[in-house]
């Protein structure tokens, strides 16, 4: 799909808002796909008739610790001067 050259000057606010919201939603979905993949590998042994408490706990902890790790890495990288220059738009949200 190609956008008309002069669309840049007159962006439809309703469409712009729509795209922003959908992009945000999709970023969330994308992360959930990835996290489910990672945490499934770590927490689920043999699929049974329901997720037991231990598995549910493990999945919750897995999500929390993954985000902790992301934050930790971002924070630590921010402290190194060279990285700060290129990482201005890096945050996990």
């Amino acid at each position: 799909m190609s956008l008309d050259k002069n669309t840049a000057v007159s962006v439809d606010p309703q469409l712009q808002h729509f795209i922003e919201v959908e992009t945000q939603k999709q970023r969330f979905q994308f992360l959930v796909h990835g996290l489910t993949d990672t945490c499934w590998e770590l927490c689920v042994d043999k699929p049974s008739s329901r997720l037991d408490n231990r598995t549910e706990n493990c999945l919750n902890n897995c999500v929390e610790r993954f985000i902790d790790t992301t934050n930790f890495i971002v924070n630590r990288l921010e402290k190194t001067q060279q990285f700060a220059a290129v990482s201005s738009d890096l945050s996990f949200e």
């Binding site: 959930v32 489910t36 689920v44 949200e93």
Partner: peptide, 17 residues
């Protein structure tokens, strides 16, 4: 179970956010 896990992860992530 994969769907259960997906939903659980989605909820946990959104709570954390």
């Amino acid at each position: 179970r994969y769907m259960d896990a997906w939903n659980l992860v989605s909820k946990a992530y959104s709570n954390r956010l």
